[in-house]
Design a binder for these strands. Structure first.
Lengths: 288, 288
DNA sequence: CAAATAGTGTCTTTAAGACATTATTAT
DNA sequence: ATAATAATGTCTTAAAGACACTATTTG
């Protein structure tokens, strides 16, 4: 195509103003919370990685890890690259959330953000990452439903987002709106009174939590937060922490039975009956 | 924050190379296909809007409608704006698909594409749109599953994408890959042998079709392709066209009974029992 | 009446939830 | 023995699928 070559030579993409594109990643992990009673099981907490900003804008606020996309890489790659720098974990689970581009969302200028959800098994995190002198910290996540208001054509659900790491307490009020117009079912999330959270990241976090819950129900995301071998109680605890519900043991085991496979190993040494270790049933996952 | 003002003044976002960002929209509608037999019902076909490119690159190929994001608008807005120009329909159903940024995907340079899924009830389309002398055309969509290969840790499903508008026949071979690594369940779509379809748009279309099917199952997307009032048979035909399956009448009605509401009106005048008209049950949709 | 679509009823299978019960371990 | 968790069993309810049947209209 000689015409095409000719055309491209004279084509100047720079004549229009261009945005910067960033990847912003909500990385979750589930950490064990030890119990003093030797007989009792550890608890579990959902945690989110946040980074203290060292310079303006939003200096000293906490932001999601992320960075600008470079030419000659995909934005997915930007996310993986930034993530590796922060957590030293490779082969991390990553999936796209929505792309946010509200004018004015970043005071530095026109910056479009691709949101990502990442899940890491906490046993794969080196002790130091997100815990050393650096400014990356794991925050315990609270995402409680406060109220639900059903109007004529829309439903408003309010949540309280709380992120806690020792002294540092971040928070925001989240409103999830489901509305039904002539054209169909619309879904939107907004954040207000964002405290200590930089940019519109509270909104992206809320979006990530909603997606994490959806993926937990429909795509077995809980398994991405566990090591290869796990007990049924581990799985149930992770499920319950993410979903913020309590399940009946018997029913939960039945519900999951198709997605797991018994191994030969067991986990004992605690003042009670030892538990069998399971791993994922690959076949089942491929056919979800 | 005087520091922040100071900082922003000296901040030059332009010192790094920047991409262009485009919205590419897969707009679907379901068209009636009349039957000569006066007694028989019309059939239905899923259709996709494509635009013939008037200049390089990919001159004379068909591409998804779309365009570049402008400063001071969201990319969602870019999509709605471009869509209105092509179809003259406002209040269209729109939702984000994935954002694609493979290097080299556009020969003009570094262009990141935000994919969108849009659904329009065909009765709201003016006769001329996509049908006049302009280069916008509605293509009948074929998306047939050819084979499914299950390997150790991955499953490959192959589809044939065919787009037909009279003389114009576009096609591509689609491979959907679900793989299960240590980190979790990954999903990807690729297109090969793309014939007559510009850029990587075959891939975006495949992605849109998969999302449309998911939304049809879980979010009642079929209703966005129907007018406010519809018969149960309309709904079932749309469902079957999208999903490429055949449902049993009785079971389908039962399955949908919670999502619809009977109206007083009926639709008669065809050599058989007249059918009742339904509309969506708003309450049910808000609580999906 | 015949052709065609509209709409209902019943039986079976499968999954989800409530709740009670038994099993095994370290101290 | 006891405290604690692990694991199974049973009954009920709700949804999904198979399939046979009845109802209504126009030419």
């Amino acid at each position: 195509m000689p015409d095409e070559k000719e055309f491209l030579k004279s084509y100047n993409i720079k004549k229009y103003e261009q945005p910067s594109v960033a990847a912003d990643i909500a990385v979750f992990t589930v950490k064990n919370i030890p119990d003093e009673n030797y007989r009792k099981l550890d608890g579990k907490k959902l945690c989110l990685l946040m980074i203290r900003r060292g310079k303006p804008p939003f200096q000293d606020y906490f932001a999601l890890p992320g960075g600008f996309a470079k030419k000659d890489e995909t934005v997915d790659n930007t996310a993986l690259r930034e993530l590796f720098e922060e957590t030293s974990v490779e082969n991390i689970y990553l999936s796209q959330l929505k792309t946010t581009s509200t004018p004015g969302r970043d005071p530095r200028g026109w910056i479009i953000s691709c949101g990502y959800l990442a899940l890491v098994d906490s046993t794969r995190l080196s002790v130091k990452s997100g815990d050393d002198a650096a400014d990356a910290r794991w925050f315990e996540v609270g995402f409680t439903r406060l109220s639900c208001e059903q109007l004529e054509n829309e439903k408003l659900t309010r949540y309280r987002l709380e992120l806690i790491n020792g002294e540092n307490r971040l928070s925001a009020d989240i409103t999830e709106k489901i509305s039904l117009g002539a054209s169909g079912r619309e879904y939107s999330v907004t954040a207000e009174n964002s405290k200590g959270i930089a940019f519109d990241h509270a909104e992206i976090i809320a979006c990530a939590l909603t997606e994490l819950r959806r993926k937990t129900i429909y795509e077995g995301a809980a398994f991405s937060l566990l090591p290869e071998c796990f007990t049924m109680t581990d799985l149930q605890q992770v499920y319950e922490t993410i979903m913020d519900v309590k399940e009946s043991d018997a029913n939960f085991r039945r519900k999951m039975s198709g997605f797991v496979q018994l191994t030969d190993e067991t986990q004992g040494g605690m003042g009670h009956r030892p538990s069998k270790l399971y791993k994922r049933n690959i076949e089942a996952f491929l056919n979800i």
